[in-house]
């Protein structure tokens, strides 16, 4: 419900060497507001980039009128900004390829694995 806010861990102590990987790891703590599954596992995060304090997240939503859009943006931004090495979060809405239920878990987990983050 809360986007898993109650489960968020403390910000990382030091600046991670691989920031993109660290962002993926942190995003794993952000849950879908309706169901207890992380945004990467749900397959909503398409890409992550980091440059000079700015975290850029390409994300999609399950529906064009997803009523939780607002909450998802807020949760991602709040969690990332709690890291002292992130000053700004840019969220880019992406609809290509469109999200389908095929993206759940498998794609999310594969992405996490590729980044070396244990799912």
């Amino acid at each position: 419900m809360s986007g898993g806010r109650d489960l968020w861990s403390a910000p990382l102590g030091e600046v991670p060497r691989d920031r993109v990987k660290a962002i993926w790891k942190v995003l794993q703590e952000v849950l879908d507001p309706e169901i207890p599954i992380s945004l990467p596992e749900l397959g909503l995060i398409y890409d992550v980039a980091y440059e000079e304090g700015i975290a850029r997240i390409d994300l999609t939503f399950t529906a064009t009128a997803c009523p939780c859009m607002d909450f998802i943006r807020e949760d991602i931004t709040d969690r990332l900004l709690s890291e002292h090495w992130i000053d700004r979060v840019e969220l880019i809405e992406v609809w290509d390829p469109p999200w389908t239920s095929d993206r759940i878990t498998v794609e999310g987990r594969e992405k996490l694995k590729k980044m070396g983050v244990s799912a």
Partner: peptide
């Protein structure tokens, strides 16, 4: 259609 819109609490795989 009714089932899809009524039981929309999860992002069902099937």
């Amino acid at each position: 259609v009714y089932a899809w819109t009524t039981y929309s609490e999860e992002k069902w795989f099937e």
